[in-house]
C-alpha cells in the first residue's frame, strides 16, 4: 500500500459526561437543558478512532486523515481548539444538530454525502473510522448507515485493534460477548471501522500540530454547510429515571456479620 490510506474519521461532539444532563422539549423537539451552554467534547469513542487513524496514517506513508463532524458550528469551533492540538487532520464541517435525539439514519446519510464530496478522496483507498456508539444517541447505527450509503460492505464494530498485514490485508479485532474478540481479516480498503477503546493513549497537546491544523480548521468552519435533519422518531416522552433507592446503611457492624449477610444474599 505504497499510496497510503485515505482515512475519514466521523466524530461528533457530546456534552461533557460529567455535566448534569436534563431533557427538555423545545420548539425544535427534544434536547438538553442549556444544551448550548454545556461544555462539549469530542465523542469519546470517536476520539479513540481519530487517534488510531492518525497513528495509522503516520505509519503508512502517503496516508491522510479527514475528520468529518456535524454539530452547531460555534460548539464545533470550541471542541476543535482542543482536538486540533492532538493529531493532524483536515476538518470537514456540517453545521447541524449534535443532539442524541437526532436520527441516526438521517445523520448517517448527511455524513455520507459530505464524505462523498471530499475533493480528491480515493474510495479504493478509503477507510471510514468512527466510534462504534456515540455517548449521546448510543445507537451504534450511524457508521453502518454511512457504509451503506457509500457502498462499503466490509464493516466492523467494537474494534480494538487494526493491524496491516504483510500482504496489505487488514486484521481486525472486534469486541464480542464475554470479553472475547472476533478475529477477522479483510483483504484491504475500502472498509468501515466502528472503534471501541482501541489501544492508544490520548496524545499530548502539540502546539505545532495545532498550528498546522488551524490553517484548515477555520476555513472549514467558515464554509460549513448547514444541514437540517427532516425526519426522525416521534418521541412521546423523555425522562430521567427517578427511582431512588432507600439505602440501608450498615455501619459499625462486625466483619463476620457483614460477610455472612452478603453470602446469604448471594445464595438467596
Amino acid at each position: 500500500m505504497s499510496a497510503g490510506y485515505h482515512i475519514v474519521v466521523c466524530g461528533g461532539i457530546v456534552p461533557d459526561p460529567l455535566q448534569t444532563l436534563e431533557p427538555v422539549q423545545g420548539p425544535a423537539g427534544w434536547g438538553l437543558k442549556n444544551e448550548l451552554m454545556l461544555p462539549a467534547i469530542l465523542d469519546p469513542w470517536a476520539g479513540h478512532a481519530l487517534f488510531e487513524a492518525a497513528n495509522l496514517a503516520k505509519n503508512v506513508p502517503g496516508s491522510k486523515v479527514w475528520l468529518v463532524s456535524m454539530g452547531p458550528k460555534a460548539k464545533l469551533q470550541q471542541v476543535m481548539m482542543t482536538i486540533a492540538q492532538k493529531v493532524p487532520f483536515e476538518l470537514v464541517v456540517l453545521d447541524g444538530p449534535a443532539s442524541g435525539f437526532a436520527d441516526a439514519h438521517e445523520t448517517g446519510a448527511a455524513l455520507a454525502e459530505a464524505i462523498a464530496a471530499i475533493p480528491g478522496l480515493d474510495t479504493s483507498r478509503l477507510l471510514v473510522f468512527g466510534g462504534w456508539q456515540s455517548a449521546s444517541r448510543g445507537a451504534g447505527a450511524t457508521m453502518q448507515v454511512i457504509g451503506e450509503k457509500l457502498g462499503i460492505f466490509e464493516q466492523f464494530q467494537g474494534v480494538d485493534k487494526l493491524e496491516i498485514l504483510a500482504d496489505g490485508a487488514l486484521r481486525v479485532l472486534e469486541r464480542v460477548e464475554g470479553g472475547s474478540y472476533q478475529d477477522s481479516v479483510v483483504s484491504g480498503a475500502p472498509a468501515v471501522f466502528g472503534w471501541a477503546t482501541g489501544e492508544l493513549p490520548e496524545p499530548p497537546n502539540n502546539p505545532q500540530v495545532g498550528m498546522q491544523n488551524m490553517r484548515l480548521v477555520m476555513p472549514a468552519l467558515q464554509k460549513a454547510k448547514p444541514v437540517k435533519l427532516e425526519k426522525g422518531p416521534e418521541y412521546s416522552g423523555v425522562q430521567i429515571p427517578s427511582q431512588k433507592r432507600e439505602t440501608r446503611v450498615v455501619k459499625d457492624a462486625p466483619v463476620d456479620q457483614i460477610a455472612k449477610e452478603i453470602v446469604d444474599w448471594l445464595s438467596a
Binding site: 431533557p23 442524541g100 448510543g138 429515571p241
Partner: peptide
C-alpha cells in the same frame, strides 16, 4: 440516551 442517563419512549 446519553449513556443511560435518560430514556425515551418513541414510535416511528
Amino acid at each position: 440516551y446519553y449513556r443511560q442517563r435518560m430514556y425515551a419512549e418513541l414510535t416511528r
